[in-house]
Simulated scan of single mutants.
Amino acid sequence: MKLIKWLFALLVLALVVAVVVAWTMPADVAWRYIAPKAGPISLVGVRGTVWDGHADGISVFGRDLGELDWRIDKAPLLSRRVVADLRIKGADIDGSGVLERTGSGRIEARDVRFRVPAALFAPALDIPSLSLLGAVTGTFSKATFADGRVSDAAGTARWTEAGVSGSAEARFSDILADFASRPDGSIAGTLADDGRGDLAVEGRFSVSPAGFDAEAFLSARNDDVRVSEALRYIGQPQADGSSHLVIRGELFKLF
């Protein structure tokens, strides 16, 4: 009987020690175990705890995004859910949101806000003679990822201080995008300018695990010479002086 009591006491002690270690585990120690399974994600300068920590740098596919801060709620763990509040802050990149992983492996993103330089999308456009100016900001309230599909997603994005430099110089009005998930698990949206500048834009796009597909018609308002010159380097010229831009590619080009 005493042996059973001692074994039970040791079991309770081991459980308490395990809880204490998990509760206070340094983030850098945990990252050593997670890093081999993190794929294209890399962290440096990790400190704090598993629950409330910081990384001096986070990179994806070798692209530096900036610093990372996270906070993980402990209570949801009792129902096999991981809920993390994340913030990425770089020199020209800013993003925040809540990520939740359920017991079934489904991932939900909520209250996501982002700001990235427009130049980030240059590899997808593949226009080496022009550099993209300005920044793209956006939000979406919710998105669910499961089995390689996206559902329940809807949001907006805005290209502010839009323009190009290089072989041609031009500034545009803001360009707007609205997007939402589709039944097949992809995301589709529309593109348009805000109507206040000399570049008219009308287009659509779609994004899926297989890649992205976009099409837009661009034209100069008010016979703007600079915009007309810039359109010579973008897409296929049309008889009416507009340009037809078609983009297809793989997502990894953005990295």
Rank of each mutant, 00 (worst) to 15 (best):
K2W: 03
I4M: 07
K5L: 06
K5T: 03
A9D: 09
A9Q: 13
A9M: 06
V17P: 02
A18S: 12
W23L: 04
M25R: 03
A30D: 04
R32N: 15
Y33W: 08
L43P: 02
W51A: 12
D52V: 00
D52C: 04
S59W: 01
V60S: 13
R63E: 08
R71G: 12
I72D: 14
I72P: 06
A75W: 09
P76E: 07
P76Q: 07
L77Y: 09
V83R: 15
V83K: 13
L86A: 09
K89M: 03
K89S: 11
G90K: 01
D94E: 14
G95I: 00
T102D: 14
R106E: 13
R113E: 04
L120G: 10
L120H: 06
L120P: 01
D126Q: 13
D126T: 04
D126F: 04
T139F: 14
F140M: 12
F145E: 12
R149W: 05
D152Q: 14
A153F: 05
A153R: 11
T156R: 15
T156Y: 15
I175R: 14
I175Q: 15
D178F: 06
F179Q: 10
D184A: 14
T190F: 05
A192P: 03
D193F: 03
G195S: 12
A200L: 02
V201N: 05
G203C: 06
A210Y: 02
F212E: 00
D224P: 01
S228T: 02
I234H: 06
I234Q: 05
G235A: 11
R248H: 11
G249N: 07
L251F: 06
